[in-house]
């Protein structure tokens, strides 16, 4: 557990900044809801009739006038992007930063197996993702309570669970990337997060690109589907978790035998 503790201490600032930023943005979005609710009847019509733009963000299926409809779209985007960035950033740096900062020599000349280093770093990444999700979840529920709305527990829990799973998948993929790269892993991680976000928008817009939903984890976080169906698409989630697991397996496979610079 020594390395887990060390990693958490090293990542403390980044964790606080990201978690704080996402939580504050979420609270802001929720606080804006009462003001927008009154104007929503007209806005909702406008939002749902913008063609491809509406379908890209699921606004054709959700009612902006209800808290959960508004939350799934507005807050969903904040938590979706913010959480994806944080998870990617955190995982993409995990292994690569040791070689980039030339601290790998220090760490790897102690009597610790590489498998243990990988495992402890992975645990640290997952713990940070869990902690970030928990804080944001708490702040979101608190702010909904503060604006005096009823808390739609089931949909809210499903949404947050979906985003948590998305972060896990991206963390797994980026952790794999981290094992292969010495420099530029952070950029690659953010690139992956942005790419899969846009792939989801594309797959929402055109039918012909629907296969993309199996590639991007944002497909199973789609607020419109979750709210209207009342459940997660287990198939997509399983594919996503499989992709994340592949990333982690690649990290173990490669980092175990890699020449360290």
């Amino acid at each position: 557990m020594t390395i887990v503790k060390h990693e958490l201490r090293q990542g403390r600032t980044s964790f606080c900044v990201w978690t704080g930023a996402i939580a504050v943005m979420m609270a802001f979005c929720v606080f804006l809801f009462p003001e927008m609710k009154g104007e929503m009847d007209s806005i909702s019509d406008a939002f749902s009739s913008m063609g491809a733009f509406s379908s890209a963000f699921g606004m054709d299926q959700l009612n902006f006038g209800t808290l959960i409809g508004y939350y799934a779209i507005e807050c969903g985007n904040v938590l979706g992007l913010g959480g994806a960035f944080f998870a990617s950033l955190c995982a993409a740096g995990a292994l690569a930063k040791e070689e980039r900062d030339r601290t790998a020599e220090f760490l790897l000349t102690h009597p610790v197996s590489r498998a243990r280093i990988i495992t402890e770093k992975l645990v640290a990444v997952i713990l940070q993702v869990i902690a970030m999700s928990a804080v944001v979840y708490g702040v979101s529920i608190g702010s909904i309570g503060l604006v005096g709305e009823d808390i739609p527990w089931k949909e809210l829990n499903l949404l947050h669970l979906a985003y948590f799973l998305l972060q896990l998948e991206l963390a797994g993929v980026c952790f794999g990337i981290s094992a292969f790269m010495r420099k530029g892993s952070i950029g690659a991680g953010l690139g992956v997060a942005i790419m899969v976000y846009f792939l989801n928008l594309i797959s929402n817009i055109t039918e012909s690109a629907e296969f993309l939903k199996y590639i991007t984890p944002f497909s199973f976080t789609d607020g419109a589907d979750i709210v209207t169906e009342g459940k997660l698409d287990v198939g997509l989630v399983l594919v996503g978790m499989g992709i994340g697991a592949l990333g982690i397996a690649a990290a173990y496979w490669h980092y175990g035998r890699k020449d360290i610079q």
Partner: peptide
């Protein structure tokens, strides 16, 4: 015990933390 030609440690740590980390890892 190994002393590298260029000793680099994790930034933000104090000397005593580095020594403690090294001892804990052992």
């Amino acid at each position: 015990g190994y002393l590298p030609s260029e000793a680099v440690f994790h930034s933000g740590m104090r000397v005593k933390d580095v020594l403690k980390l090294s001892a804990d890892l052992r």
